[in-house]
Design a binder for these strands. Sequence first.
DNA 1: CACTATTTAATTGCATGCAATTAATATACC
DNA 2: GGTATATTAATTGCATGCAATTAAATAGTG
Lengths: 148, 148
Amino acid sequence: MNKPEEFEITEEALKLDHQLCFALYVSSKEIIKKYKPLLEPYGLTYTGYIALLALWEEDDVTVKDLGERLYLDSGTLTPLLKKLEALGLLDRKRGSDERNVFISLTEKGKTLKKETLHIPRDLICSANIDLENARQLRALLHQFMKKI
Amino acid sequence: MNKPEEFEITEEALKLDHQLCFALYVSSKEIIKKYKPLLEPYGLTYTGYIALLALWEEDDVTVKDLGERLYLDSGTLTPLLKKLEALGLLDRKRGSDERNVFISLTEKGKTLKKETLHIPRDLICSANIDLENARQLRALLHQFMKKI
DNA sequence: CACTATTTAATTGCATGCAATTAATATACC
DNA sequence: GGTATATTAATTGCATGCAATTAAATAGTG
């Protein structure tokens, strides 16, 4: 009882290369892989790096606030932040409302910003990124993120 | 000793919203999250689903071949394929070259393709995806994947 | 004030991903 | 044939991510 034209459409729509999710999934994994050798000298993982990027913009924020900016929940952030604390990069302190934990960078954490300034440029080279392609992608992804 | 114009450039380049990697990382995670409720009725995870998408295009392939198509290595695939085997969706059999393990769909695995045909369309609705935005994104991502 | 609902971080359990190593098999080369 | 090399899956160890639950604290309400 398949109408042939509909079958054709769904058949094509099922192919791996037709899936936007798969292109996003692969692109995300591949670019994260490129960061690893650049971050390893600083003892950072990719997740640690993006947490620091967020904190370098604004720190002394709660775990909840940081989680909203990073799209991560406490199940991921709590152990990550404890590791970054153990590295001496940040402090975790309860606020006057004891439910809140405030994250603030240590001097070491602030200094690391300057030492890693070269990473964005290095990544562009190592991942062979076309800047115009990247600019367009970023714009489309931000549109995508707003609606999803 | 910072040249102000260079400092400004790198400062901007360090912001979370300027990172292509972060936009990819968030978009990928968010779209995968949207798949979960659609896949749960079939007992599938996202990774299991993309493995099946690949196998529905071509099965009776080695783990290595499947890994190249999915951008996954045996460390991820071996346990995943064992789970899909336990669900009765595929078989794993050594080839005449005993280093190779060939993956082939069972009847149940083939049947599941028809039962899940609705998922791509359902996802477009639930993730509120703009088709033109998606088409452009996919094209740019494929360019990106080719070069990285 | 007493009681309930809400908020926040932490914890638990499960499913990835990947790098590095291992084990088994096959190939290449002499 | 015999040995070194290469290939393939599997295993191990580590780092996420997320859903669901828990525990503690606060806010809201009568």
